[in-house]
């Protein structure tokens, strides 16, 4: 079955992409299912302008983005779930510093502009090419390059900011 093969070949990558956006296993599975259902419905209109994997990632991004809109979530990414770090493969001893670095990395990413976060996630974690990233985000390739450079500079600045910033300057009653 064509759809089953598509799912076998690409669902892990789609899942990992969505998971990094939502940081919730059940939601990530649900949104992965929604992505492949939309892909099934749009399979006839897929014009091979991009690779299948890239096309699926673009759908996954839109599905996830729609989910955030429906849930009225402000932040596109949620890199601040410490429990996710606790449950991953890092051993408690010897790699404490690395673990701390990773936590800091998540925190720094979370504080970046949305488009910086997106371009870093696709280029550095999903290993998409500039062309693929441009297709998924609907940008030009020049814009991807420019945003990528600025994103890395911003990440470096955020990461090395001593002690970090207070969690926002907005004082709100709630």
């Amino acid at each position: 079955m064509e759809m089953e093969q598509l799912y076998k070949d690409h669902s892990d990558r789609v899942y990992s992409y969505i998971y990094l956006l939502v940081r919730h296993k059940e939601f990530a599975e649900d949104l992965t299912q929604e992505t492949f259902y939309k892909a099934y419905k749009g399979l006839n209109t897929f014009n091979k302008q991009a690779s299948t994997a890239t096309w699926l990632l673009k759908i996954a991004r839109n599905v996830t983005y729609d989910y955030f809109r429906r849930k009225r979530v402000i932040q596109f990414f949620s890199f601040d779930k410490v429990q996710d770090l606790e449950s991953n493969a890092l051993s408690p001893e010897g790699r404490f510093e690395q673990k701390e670095q990773l936590a800091r990395m998540y925190d720094s990413l979370r504080k970046l502009k949305k488009d910086y976060q997106e371009v870093l996630l696709l280029r550095k974690i999903q290993e998409c090419s500039i062309k693929e990233t441009a297709y998924i985000l609907g940008w030009t390739e020049a814009k991807v390059k420019m945003k990528m450079t600025r994103a890395l500079v911003a990440l470096k600045k955020e990461f090395h900011q001593e002690g970090g910033r207070a969690n926002g300057t907005i004082k709100r009653i709630r």
Binding site: E4, E29, F36, M105, E127
Partner: peptide
């Protein structure tokens, strides 16, 4: 700046997904 974080990005690629969850999602999709 382009490769300073490569090691950490590498670690972030490691997203666990159980075979059971993957199979359940497929069955629902199917």
């Amino acid at each position: 700046p382009s490769n300073e974080f490569d090691e950490l990005f590498e670690e972030m690629k490691d997203v666990e997904r159980s075979r059971e969850a993957k199979q359940n999602t497929w069955l629902s999709l199917k």
